[in-house]
Amino acid sequence: MLLVTGATGTVGREVLRRLSGDLPVRVMARKPERVAGAAESAEIVRGDYDDARSLARALAGVAGVFLVTSRVGRDDDARFLRAARAAGVRHVVKVSAAAVEDARADDLITRWQRGNEDLLRGSGMEWTLLRPRSFMSNTLSWAESVREEGVVRALYGTSANSCVDPGDIADVAVSALTEPGHSGRAYTLTGPEALTAAEQTARLSELLGRPLSFEELDPGQARDLWSARYPAPLVEALLRSAERQRCGAKAGVENTVEEALGRPARPFRAWAEDHLAAFMAH
């Protein structure tokens, strides 16, 4: 039995779509009604990292887990890994972040991910770590302004990021869950090229067949924008992360997707073609 967590999120949703109906799969979600794309044979259960009993029920009989946690600063990983070990889970495939490898990265999010990685490596279970660069799907946050104004607004628009297609992350995750040879491996996952937000805007403009303009946000504007969505400590972590990107820390391209899957990582243009409707005027 495989357990998928985070199945309503960006990567977990893609993992679920890729797991064959021939495999016994259980899905744990806080809101099971939001789970979509699972095989008809998949078992969907309600579970919460704060509820030890729900974790025990979700993990009963499970051999392998796809683990996603997102509440920065919380001890969700510790709670889950204790329950997984008690249930006899053999292998955990966890989504972490590429920044953990950067000695200059010392923001709240990165420290939290490093601690979670240490917990998994010390759990006594087999482990595989997926360390993606920023998701190509983050550009969906531009969709409304693109549709309504023909404008993209972003911080440090001329700084490059080797962002990765979430589908590639999911493909590597499924391979790690279902095929041998991935235990004890940490995969840094990037796209095939490093792009700036201005370059992504130009590619979207070309695909949409209409002009788009790019407007640079300054750090104060970015702080105000993010503060409407995130608590202050997380906003400061995002600003520090953006500053590292401005200094070139996120421009490196890895060949790990091809090494793991036997095919190249998908470029931003291919991702954008698949999601173009989100940017088109209604």
Rank of each mutant, 00 (worst) to 15 (best):
A237N: 03
L2D: 05
A277P: 04
D51M: 02
R46D: 08
G73P: 02
G9D: 11
G88Q: 04
D48F: 04
L217T: 08
G115I: 00
Q221H: 04
F66R: 07
R17D: 14
T10Q: 15
S159E: 06
P132K: 09
V62S: 02
D51Q: 05
A36W: 01
M28K: 12
Y230P: 08
L108A: 09
G61F: 01
L81D: 12
I169S: 06
L155M: 03
R71L: 06
E199P: 12
T158D: 14
W142D: 09
A105G: 08
L59V: 09
S213G: 14
W142L: 03
R269E: 13
G12K: 03
V89Y: 01
L2V: 15
A154E: 10
A228G: 15
N138G: 05
L2H: 13
A86D: 01
R147P: 07
G37R: 13
K94R: 07
A98N: 12
R244E: 11
D51A: 01
L261D: 08
G252V: 11
L189M: 01
D50E: 07
T5S: 15
V253H: 05
D274A: 15
R114T: 00
E236I: 01
F268I: 12
S41G: 08
E149I: 07
F268M: 11
T178K: 04
A278F: 10
V25M: 05
E179H: 15
H182S: 00
F214T: 14
G6D: 10
R203Y: 13
R74F: 05
D218R: 06
F279R: 13
M1G: 15
D224A: 15
L155A: 04
P32R: 06
F268E: 11
L276I: 06
A278E: 13
G115R: 01
E258M: 05
E216V: 14
I44V: 11
A270P: 06
V93P: 00
A265K: 05
A97W: 11
F135Q: 07
W226T: 05
D168E: 06
R13S: 13
V146N: 10
S227E: 06
G37P: 12
L59G: 04
T10C: 15
A173D: 00
P32M: 07
M280Q: 10
G115F: 02
V65P: 07
E14M: 14
D168I: 05
A105T: 00
V45H: 03
I44W: 14
L261T: 08
R34H: 08
V62C: 01
E273D: 08
R30S: 10
A38P: 12
V25E: 00
A278P: 03
R210W: 10
G88F: 00
A242D: 15
E14A: 13
S41I: 12
S70V: 07
E101I: 02
V152C: 11
A270W: 12
P166G: 00
G47F: 02
R71K: 12
A232C: 13
L81Y: 10
K250P: 12
D165R: 06
S145I: 06
